[in-house]
C-alpha cells in the first residue's frame, strides 16, 4: 500500500513537472532567469499570496504598469502575450513556479 502511494505521488509530481515544462519552459527556454523574476516579485510583493496574485493578474492581462521588469526592457522586447491557460491551470502553474523558485524556503 505504501509502495503504491509513493508511486502515485511520484507520478503526480512528474506529471506536474512535465506540465510546467510544457506550459512555461517551452517559450521561456532554458536560459530564462526564473529566480531573478521571483526575486523581483518578492522585493515588490513580499508575501506568497500577494506574489501569486500579482503573477496571475499580469499573465491574464499583461500590462506595462503591472510588470515588474524595467520599462526599458519592455520597450526593447515588448509585452508578453496573454496566457491561453484557463484560470485553474494557470494558478497551478504559478503554484509550481513559486514552489520551485521562492526565496523564503531556501532560508536556513
Amino acid at each position: 500500500m505504501v509502495k503504491k502511494t509513493a508511486l502515485f505521488i511520484l507520478f503526480c509530481t512528474l506529471l506536474n513537472a512535465w506540465e510546467f515544462d510544457k506550459n512555461c519552459l517551452v517559450c521561456h527556454g532554458e536560459d530564462f532567469k526564473f529566480h531573478i523574476i521571483m526575486n523581483k516579485y518578492t522585493l515588490k510583493y513580499s508575501s506568497e499570496q500577494r506574489i501569486k496574485e500579482a503573477i496571475f493578474e499580469y499573465l491574464k492581462e499583461p500590462d506595462i504598469n503591472k510588470s515588474i521588469l524595467p520599462p526599458e526592457y519592455i520597450k526593447k522586447f515588448g509585452l508578453k502575450q496573454k496566457s491561453n491557460l484557463d484560470d485553474e491551470k494557470l494558478k497551478k502553474m504559478i503554484d509550481i513556479y513559486y514552489k520551485r523558485f521562492n526565496q523564503q524556503s531556501k532560508i536556513y
Binding site: S46, E48, Q104, K106, Y108
Partner: peptide
C-alpha cells in the same frame, strides 16, 4: 544560491515577517 543562510549575531536576535 540554492540555500540562503539567515544572518546571525552575537549581541541580538532577529526575526522577519512578510507584508501579511
Amino acid at each position: 544560491s540554492e540555500r540562503l543562510q539567515y544572518p546571525r549575531f552575537e549581541d541580538f536576535n532577529s526575526a522577519i515577517y512578510d507584508i501579511d
